[in-house]
Amino acid sequence: MDLDTLAQQFLNALQLGSLYALVALGYTMVYGVLLLINFAHGDIFMFGAFIGVFGAFVLGLPFLPTLLLSMIITALLGITIEKVAYKPLRHASRLSAVITALGVGLLLENGMLALTGADPRRYPDNFFAASVTIGDTTLELSVRIVIIAVALILFLCLYYIVQRTKWGMAMRAISYDKFAVPLMGVSQDRIITLTFVLGAGLAAAAGILWGVAFTASLSPYMGLRVGWKAFIAAVVGGIGDIRGAALGGLLLGFVEIFVVALGSPIGISSSYRDLVGFALLLVILVVRPTGLFGVARRQKL
Protein backbone atom coordinates (compact mmCIF):
# COMPACT_ATOMS: atom_id res chain seq x y z
CA MET A 1 0.00 0.00 0.00
CA ASP A 2 1.51 3.30 -1.02
CA LEU A 3 1.41 6.44 1.03
CA ASP A 4 -1.41 8.03 -0.92
CA THR A 5 -3.77 5.08 -0.49
CA LEU A 6 -2.82 4.98 3.15
CA ALA A 7 -3.76 8.62 3.53
CA GLN A 8 -7.03 7.99 1.71
CA GLN A 9 -7.83 5.05 3.95
CA PHE A 10 -6.90 7.11 6.95
CA LEU A 11 -9.44 9.74 5.92
CA ASN A 12 -12.04 7.06 5.26
CA ALA A 13 -11.47 5.64 8.70
CA LEU A 14 -11.62 9.04 10.32
CA GLN A 15 -14.86 9.79 8.51
CA LEU A 16 -16.55 6.51 9.42
CA GLY A 17 -15.19 6.67 12.94
CA SER A 18 -16.39 10.20 13.60
CA LEU A 19 -19.87 9.26 12.41
CA TYR A 20 -19.93 6.27 14.72
CA ALA A 21 -18.69 8.54 17.45
CA LEU A 22 -21.52 11.04 16.99
CA VAL A 23 -24.08 8.26 17.34
CA ALA A 24 -22.21 6.67 20.23
CA LEU A 25 -22.30 9.94 22.14
CA GLY A 26 -26.08 9.79 22.35
CA TYR A 27 -25.97 6.25 23.70
CA THR A 28 -23.41 7.10 26.27
CA MET A 29 -25.11 10.26 27.54
CA VAL A 30 -28.48 8.61 27.99
CA TYR A 31 -26.83 5.69 29.71
CA GLY A 32 -24.87 7.99 31.98
CA VAL A 33 -27.98 9.81 33.12
CA LEU A 34 -30.68 7.13 33.07
CA LEU A 35 -28.72 3.86 33.04
CA LEU A 36 -30.90 3.06 30.04
CA ILE A 37 -29.58 1.40 26.92
CA ASN A 38 -31.58 3.46 24.46
CA PHE A 39 -31.94 0.90 21.71
CA ALA A 40 -34.07 3.35 19.72
CA HIS A 41 -31.09 5.61 19.21
CA GLY A 42 -30.07 4.07 15.89
CA ASP A 43 -33.52 4.81 14.55
CA ILE A 44 -33.36 8.36 15.81
CA PHE A 45 -30.26 8.61 13.64
CA MET A 46 -32.29 7.32 10.70
CA PHE A 47 -35.05 9.82 11.44
CA GLY A 48 -32.52 12.64 11.32
CA ALA A 49 -31.32 11.53 7.91
CA PHE A 50 -34.90 11.43 6.62
CA ILE A 51 -35.65 14.90 7.91
CA GLY A 52 -32.65 15.84 5.77
CA VAL A 53 -34.51 14.54 2.70
CA PHE A 54 -37.50 16.64 3.70
CA GLY A 55 -35.39 19.77 4.18
CA ALA A 56 -33.44 19.37 0.99
CA PHE A 57 -36.21 18.42 -1.42
CA VAL A 58 -39.43 19.81 -0.03
CA LEU A 59 -38.09 23.00 1.53
CA GLY A 60 -35.17 23.25 -0.88
CA LEU A 61 -32.74 24.19 1.85
CA PRO A 62 -28.97 23.97 1.43
CA PHE A 63 -26.75 21.77 3.50
CA LEU A 64 -26.18 23.70 6.71
CA PRO A 65 -29.77 24.89 7.30
CA THR A 66 -30.96 21.35 6.58
CA LEU A 67 -28.53 20.07 9.14
CA LEU A 68 -29.81 22.50 11.75
CA LEU A 69 -33.45 21.86 10.92
CA SER A 70 -32.94 18.14 11.19
CA MET A 71 -31.13 18.47 14.50
CA ILE A 72 -33.98 20.54 15.93
CA ILE A 73 -36.81 18.32 14.72
CA THR A 74 -35.01 15.17 15.75
CA ALA A 75 -34.29 16.65 19.16
CA LEU A 76 -38.04 17.19 19.51
CA LEU A 77 -38.57 13.56 18.60
CA GLY A 78 -36.04 12.58 21.24
CA ILE A 79 -37.88 14.58 23.89
CA THR A 80 -41.21 13.11 22.83
CA ILE A 81 -39.92 9.56 23.05
CA GLU A 82 -38.51 10.23 26.48
CA LYS A 83 -41.69 11.82 27.79
CA VAL A 84 -44.09 9.29 26.34
CA ALA A 85 -42.21 6.02 26.54
CA TYR A 86 -39.41 6.23 29.10
CA LYS A 87 -40.52 8.68 31.75
CA PRO A 88 -43.47 6.62 33.00
CA LEU A 89 -41.07 3.72 33.49
CA ARG A 90 -38.48 5.59 35.49
CA HIS A 91 -39.43 3.78 38.66
CA ALA A 92 -40.17 0.41 37.11
CA SER A 93 -37.58 -2.27 36.51
CA ARG A 94 -34.71 -1.03 34.41
CA LEU A 95 -35.31 -3.77 31.89
CA SER A 96 -38.88 -2.67 31.16
CA ALA A 97 -37.44 0.58 29.89
CA VAL A 98 -34.88 -1.25 27.77
CA ILE A 99 -37.58 -3.39 26.21
CA THR A 100 -39.66 -0.29 25.60
CA ALA A 101 -36.64 1.21 23.87
CA LEU A 102 -36.44 -1.86 21.62
CA GLY A 103 -40.12 -1.39 20.87
CA VAL A 104 -39.72 2.30 20.09
CA GLY A 105 -36.86 1.44 17.74
CA LEU A 106 -38.94 -1.12 15.86
CA LEU A 107 -41.83 1.33 15.75
CA LEU A 108 -39.71 4.11 14.28
CA GLU A 109 -38.08 2.06 11.56
CA ASN A 110 -41.14 0.11 10.51
CA GLY A 111 -43.41 3.11 10.96
CA MET A 112 -41.14 5.08 8.69
CA LEU A 113 -41.23 2.32 6.09
CA ALA A 114 -45.00 1.98 6.34
CA LEU A 115 -45.65 5.71 6.09
CA THR A 116 -43.15 6.63 3.41
CA GLY A 117 -42.85 3.53 1.29
CA ALA A 118 -39.78 1.72 0.10
CA ASP A 119 -38.59 4.07 -2.68
CA PRO A 120 -34.82 4.47 -2.63
CA ARG A 121 -33.75 7.88 -1.38
CA ARG A 122 -30.69 10.03 -1.47
CA TYR A 123 -29.84 13.69 -1.12
CA PRO A 124 -29.91 16.02 -4.15
CA ASP A 125 -26.73 16.01 -6.24
CA ASN A 126 -25.94 19.65 -5.51
CA PHE A 127 -26.88 19.31 -1.86
CA PHE A 128 -23.40 19.37 -0.53
CA ALA A 129 -21.44 22.29 -1.91
CA ALA A 130 -17.94 20.99 -1.76
CA SER A 131 -16.34 24.30 -2.50
CA VAL A 132 -15.94 27.48 -0.55
CA THR A 133 -15.29 30.79 -2.23
CA ILE A 134 -13.22 33.23 -0.26
CA GLY A 135 -12.61 36.42 -2.20
CA ASP A 136 -11.41 35.33 -5.61
CA THR A 137 -10.11 31.94 -4.73
CA THR A 138 -12.33 28.92 -4.75
CA LEU A 139 -11.33 26.21 -2.37
CA GLU A 140 -12.33 22.71 -3.29
CA LEU A 141 -13.12 20.82 -0.18
CA SER A 142 -13.16 17.10 0.12
CA VAL A 143 -16.48 15.80 1.39
CA ARG A 144 -14.69 13.66 3.90
CA ILE A 145 -12.78 16.54 5.39
CA VAL A 146 -15.95 18.57 5.84
CA ILE A 147 -17.70 15.64 7.47
CA ILE A 148 -14.82 15.12 9.83
CA ALA A 149 -14.70 18.84 10.58
CA VAL A 150 -18.44 19.08 11.27
CA ALA A 151 -18.25 16.07 13.54
CA LEU A 152 -15.30 17.52 15.37
CA ILE A 153 -17.01 20.89 15.85
CA LEU A 154 -20.14 19.22 17.18
CA PHE A 155 -18.08 17.13 19.54
CA LEU A 156 -16.23 20.17 20.85
CA CYS A 157 -19.53 22.01 21.40
CA LEU A 158 -20.84 19.04 23.32
CA TYR A 159 -17.66 18.75 25.31
CA TYR A 160 -17.91 22.41 26.23
CA ILE A 161 -21.54 22.03 27.32
CA VAL A 162 -20.85 18.97 29.38
CA GLN A 163 -17.65 20.17 30.99
CA ARG A 164 -18.20 23.87 31.43
CA THR A 165 -21.87 24.68 31.85
CA LYS A 166 -23.97 24.20 34.95
CA TRP A 167 -26.31 21.86 33.10
CA GLY A 168 -23.48 19.77 31.79
CA MET A 169 -21.97 19.44 35.21
CA ALA A 170 -25.31 18.44 36.64
CA MET A 171 -25.53 15.87 33.87
CA ARG A 172 -22.24 14.36 34.87
CA ALA A 173 -23.09 14.56 38.53
CA ILE A 174 -26.38 12.75 38.10
CA SER A 175 -24.65 9.65 36.84
CA TYR A 176 -22.82 9.45 40.15
CA ASP A 177 -25.67 10.22 42.47
CA LYS A 178 -29.14 10.72 41.16
CA PHE A 179 -30.49 11.77 44.53
CA ALA A 180 -27.97 14.48 45.27
CA VAL A 181 -28.46 16.49 42.10
CA PRO A 182 -32.05 17.55 42.77
CA LEU A 183 -30.86 18.73 46.17
CA MET A 184 -28.52 21.14 44.40
CA GLY A 185 -31.48 22.91 42.84
CA VAL A 186 -31.21 21.32 39.43
CA SER A 187 -34.30 19.55 38.17
CA GLN A 188 -33.69 15.97 37.17
CA ASP A 189 -36.34 16.17 34.47
CA ARG A 190 -34.62 19.09 32.82
CA ILE A 191 -31.30 17.32 32.76
CA ILE A 192 -32.89 14.28 31.20
CA THR A 193 -34.58 16.45 28.60
CA LEU A 194 -31.29 18.14 27.83
CA THR A 195 -29.62 14.76 27.48
CA PHE A 196 -32.14 13.62 24.93
CA VAL A 197 -31.94 16.91 23.06
CA LEU A 198 -28.17 16.67 22.76
CA GLY A 199 -28.13 12.95 21.98
CA ALA A 200 -30.86 13.12 19.36
CA GLY A 201 -29.41 16.28 17.83
CA LEU A 202 -26.02 14.67 17.37
CA ALA A 203 -27.61 11.53 15.98
CA ALA A 204 -29.53 13.65 13.45
CA ALA A 205 -26.34 15.37 12.36
CA ALA A 206 -24.67 11.99 12.03
CA GLY A 207 -27.62 10.78 9.97
CA ILE A 208 -27.31 13.59 7.46
CA LEU A 209 -23.56 13.33 7.26
CA TRP A 210 -23.95 9.59 6.77
CA GLY A 211 -26.34 10.21 3.88
CA VAL A 212 -23.81 12.59 2.35
CA ALA A 213 -20.91 10.22 2.81
CA PHE A 214 -22.60 7.03 1.64
CA THR A 215 -25.02 8.30 -0.97
CA ALA A 216 -27.17 5.27 -1.64
CA SER A 217 -27.75 4.31 1.96
CA LEU A 218 -30.85 6.17 3.09
CA SER A 219 -33.43 3.61 4.14
CA PRO A 220 -35.70 3.17 7.13
CA TYR A 221 -33.43 0.39 8.35
CA MET A 222 -30.20 2.34 8.01
CA GLY A 223 -30.05 2.95 11.74
CA LEU A 224 -30.15 -0.68 12.70
CA ARG A 225 -26.57 -1.74 12.14
CA VAL A 226 -25.11 1.69 12.74
CA GLY A 227 -27.00 1.91 16.00
CA TRP A 228 -25.86 -1.45 17.32
CA LYS A 229 -22.30 -0.75 16.29
CA ALA A 230 -22.27 2.68 17.88
CA PHE A 231 -23.59 1.13 21.05
CA ILE A 232 -20.71 -1.30 21.09
CA ALA A 233 -18.34 1.57 20.43
CA ALA A 234 -19.80 3.43 23.39
CA VAL A 235 -19.30 0.44 25.65
CA VAL A 236 -15.75 -0.12 24.51
CA GLY A 237 -15.01 3.51 25.22
CA GLY A 238 -16.48 3.12 28.67
CA ILE A 239 -20.18 3.79 28.65
CA GLY A 240 -21.19 6.98 30.42
CA ASP A 241 -18.08 8.90 29.36
CA ILE A 242 -18.28 11.12 26.28
CA ARG A 243 -14.57 11.01 25.54
CA GLY A 244 -14.87 7.25 25.67
CA ALA A 245 -17.72 7.25 23.17
CA ALA A 246 -15.74 9.43 20.77
CA LEU A 247 -12.67 7.26 21.08
CA GLY A 248 -14.68 4.05 20.82
CA GLY A 249 -16.38 5.31 17.66
CA LEU A 250 -13.09 6.28 16.05
CA LEU A 251 -11.55 2.97 17.04
CA LEU A 252 -14.39 1.04 15.46
CA GLY A 253 -14.11 3.13 12.29
CA PHE A 254 -10.40 2.48 12.02
CA VAL A 255 -10.75 -1.23 12.67
CA GLU A 256 -13.45 -1.63 10.05
CA ILE A 257 -11.67 0.34 7.35
CA PHE A 258 -8.27 -1.15 7.94
CA VAL A 259 -9.44 -4.74 8.20
CA VAL A 260 -10.65 -4.31 4.65
CA ALA A 261 -7.72 -2.20 3.48
CA LEU A 262 -4.97 -4.34 4.96
CA GLY A 263 -6.84 -7.61 4.68
CA SER A 264 -7.68 -7.68 0.99
CA PRO A 265 -4.05 -7.89 -0.26
CA ILE A 266 -3.44 -10.90 1.96
CA GLY A 267 -6.65 -12.62 1.02
CA ILE A 268 -8.94 -11.66 3.87
CA SER A 269 -12.28 -10.91 2.33
CA SER A 270 -14.00 -7.66 3.25
CA SER A 271 -16.85 -9.69 4.65
CA TYR A 272 -14.63 -10.35 7.65
CA ARG A 273 -15.02 -6.72 8.66
CA ASP A 274 -17.70 -7.27 11.29
CA LEU A 275 -16.08 -10.44 12.53
CA VAL A 276 -12.70 -8.88 13.15
CA GLY A 277 -14.14 -5.62 14.41
CA PHE A 278 -16.38 -7.16 17.00
CA ALA A 279 -13.86 -9.76 18.03
CA LEU A 280 -11.33 -7.03 18.67
CA LEU A 281 -13.85 -5.13 20.75
CA LEU A 282 -14.53 -8.26 22.76
CA VAL A 283 -10.84 -8.61 23.42
CA ILE A 284 -10.72 -5.04 24.69
CA LEU A 285 -13.62 -5.77 26.98
CA VAL A 286 -11.89 -8.85 28.33
CA VAL A 287 -8.79 -6.85 29.12
CA ARG A 288 -10.64 -3.78 30.37
CA PRO A 289 -14.16 -4.81 31.35
CA THR A 290 -15.21 -1.25 32.09
CA GLY A 291 -14.05 0.08 28.74
CA LEU A 292 -11.24 2.44 27.90
CA PHE A 293 -12.45 5.35 30.01
CA GLY A 294 -14.75 3.52 32.38
CA VAL A 295 -14.03 3.45 36.07
CA ALA A 296 -14.97 0.38 38.03
CA ARG A 297 -17.28 1.33 40.82
CA ARG A 298 -16.75 -0.57 44.02
CA GLN A 299 -19.81 -2.48 44.96
CA LYS A 300 -20.74 -1.56 48.48
CA LEU A 301 -21.17 -4.42 50.87
Binding site: F50, V53, F54, V58, A114, L115, T116, G117, D119, R121
Partner: peptide, 16 residues
Amino acid sequence: DFSGILAPFFPSPNNI
Protein backbone atom coordinates in the same frame (compact mmCIF):
# COMPACT_ATOMS: atom_id res chain seq x y z
CA ASP B 1 -51.31 1.27 2.35
CA PHE B 2 -50.12 4.08 4.53
CA SER B 3 -47.08 4.89 2.44
CA GLY B 4 -48.79 7.70 0.52
CA ILE B 5 -49.16 9.85 3.59
CA LEU B 6 -45.59 10.83 4.22
CA ALA B 7 -43.92 9.72 1.00
CA PRO B 8 -44.50 13.13 -0.68
CA PHE B 9 -42.52 14.76 2.12
CA PHE B 10 -39.65 12.31 1.87
CA PRO B 11 -39.37 11.96 -1.90
CA SER B 12 -36.84 9.94 -3.80
CA PRO B 13 -34.99 12.09 -6.36
CA ASN B 14 -36.83 10.66 -9.35
CA ASN B 15 -40.25 11.00 -7.83
CA ILE B 16 -40.50 14.51 -6.51
